[in-house]
Structure formats: C-alpha cells, structure tokens
C-alpha cells in the first residue's frame, strides 16, 4: 500500500474512535427513541391488551440487553487501541473457547422458551374455546368498507350465500331463512358492550382484509370463503377506530370503521333503534 504502516495505523485509530463513539451514540439514541415514545401506543382497552403488552415488555427487555450488550462491546472494540504488534492468535476451533459463545446463546434459548411459553398462553386463550355468553357480531369486509351484522332479537345469524350478493344485498343475506329476517346490517359502525366477551365472526366478500383493533392489540384476516373469528373483552368505554391491516386495493388506506364500547344497556338501546335489513326501504 502506498501509505506507510504508521500513517495507516493512526488513521485506523481515528476511524475507530469515531466508529466507537457513533455506535454508543446510536445505542443511546435508539434507547431514547423507544423510551420516550412508547407511551404513544394506543392505550390498552381489552383483556388481551395488557397480556400482549406484558410479552412485548419481556421481549423488549431481552432485546435491550442484547442490543446494548453487543453495541457496548463493538464500541469498545473500536475504541480500544490494539496494543500489540500482532493480533492474538486463537487457532480455529477449540471447543472449550466456544463456551464464550454458547453460554450467552444458552441464556438466549432459555429466554426464548420463556416468552414463547407466555405467548402460547395468550394464543391458547385467543383461539381456544370461545366464551359461552359472548356478544356476537359478524363483520364482512368489502372493498372498502366493513359490513357489521347483528343477529337481531332471535340471537341467530341468518344464512348467507355469496351468489345473492348485489349492490342492494351487500353480504348476500338469504331472506328465505327465518333467522335472517331480524338481522341488522350496518356499515362501518359497531357498538359492543364493555366487560362482556365479544365474539366477532369475520368474513370477506371480495379480497383479503384484516380486521385490526389497535387498542385491543388484536387483528385477524377476513378471508373470502372462510369464516374466521376473534374475541376479546372490551375493558374501557370509548370510541375506537377499526383499521384494515391487509392490503386490499386502492382504498386500503381509507378502510376505516368505528367501534363504540359502551354499557350493555346502551348497546341494547342503540340496537333497538336500528331497522332490520329485511325491513329496510319499506
């Protein structure tokens, strides 16, 4: 190389210094970025939300340890001056020295299994046996709106058939089914009671959508041909936005609904005011 050994090594020291400082600054900046802004998460509003958040915090804690640990080390490597003329020689592959790697990795494995176990509990509850006394709603996604259906007074959803879908009958409700007569069909608005499990059946009439409730920390895809479902117990009254999280076309960014969590009584009163779909336009 054209530059002398000495020049090169002093240049290396300078670059190393800058790199070390930069790595430590990045670490601080990242920690600050997360620390100062986590409160901007939508406040938890369902029974699942605190549980999922707890897992988030556990993983975040592990991540901070790993992230800070490695960056402290990398920064130290960059900042420390190599004193010797030569690097120390560690002949490749002495399994005893592998312990330096394998012990931290073992700890990581333990941590992995811990939060996987936590996660499985929540997952099991979410997909397990649905609660018996649930308040049932059905949501059908279309480009770009949510059709919300309540079973009406009889508590049963009427049959639907995709072949009956038209502009007048947006979810293909089969009115020959008696259970369908009192079904209430609304668009982009959904009222659910606080403190009672809410079971939402999810369907789609065209493409994939994903029913996303940020404050409840859950989402589930609406798959045409399937009926997927999700349930949660709202824990805080208020108006929340329903978002679509799966790319569903041009208007995806604007496929918004309103979720109102209120008293059971208020929900019933509100439902009583709605006209069933079969009587609409009469």
């Amino acid at each position: 190389m054209a530059v002398s050994q000495q020049q090169a090594s002093s240049r290396d020291r300078r670059t190393g210094f800058v790199l070390g400082v930069a790595l430590w600054l990045f670490t601080l900046a990242t920690l600050w970025l997360f620390g100062a802004n986590l409160h901007k998460m939508p406040p938890p509003a369902s029974d699942f939300a605190p549980q999922i958040d707890a897992i988030l915090w556990v993983i975040l804690g592990i991540s901070v340890i790993g992230f800070v640990g490695l960056h402290l080390y990398l920064g130290w490597v960059a900042l420390s001056r190599p004193a010797e003329v030569r690097a120390i020689y560690l002949p490749a592959d002495r399994p005893k020295e592998w312990l330096w790697v394998l012990v931290p990795i073992g700890l990581l494995l333990v941590a992995d299994l811990t939060f996987d176990h936590m996660s499985n509990k929540v997952w099991g509850a979410f997909f397990g046996k649905p609660p018996a006394n649930a308040f049932e709603v059905e949501v059908t996604g279309q480009q770009f709106a949510w059709h919300v259906r309540y079973p009406g007074a009889d508590g049963r959803f009427g049959r639907t058939n995709p072949r009956l879908i038209s502009d007048e009958n947006p979810i293909g409700l089969d009115l020959s089914d008696p259970a369908a007569r009192d079904d209430i069909l609304l668009i982009n608005v959904m009222h659910v009671p606080e403190g009672r499990p809410v079971m939402i059946y999810l369907r789609s009439r065209d493409v994939l959508h994903s029913f996303f409730l940020p404050p409840m920390r859950i989402k589930m895809d609406c798959v045409p041909g399937y009926t997927t479902r999700m349930w949660f117990t709202p824990q805080r009254k208020g108006n929340y936005e329903i978002a679509c999280a799966e790319l569903c076309g041009m208007g995806h960014y604007n496929m918004k609904g309103l979720l109102v969590v209120e008293d059971e009584q208020a929900v019933q009163n509100w439902l009583a005011q709605q006209t069933p779909f079969s009587k609409r336009g009469q």
Binding site: P162, G225, Y226, T227, T228, R229
Partner: peptide, 9 residues
C-alpha cells in the same frame, strides 16, 4: 381447519 375450525362455506 378449513372444515373443522373455521367452517367451509
């Protein structure tokens, strides 16, 4: 799961 869990149309 399409037949047993989610329900096939």
């Amino acid at each position: 799961s399409l037949i047993s869990f989610w329900g096939h149309p």
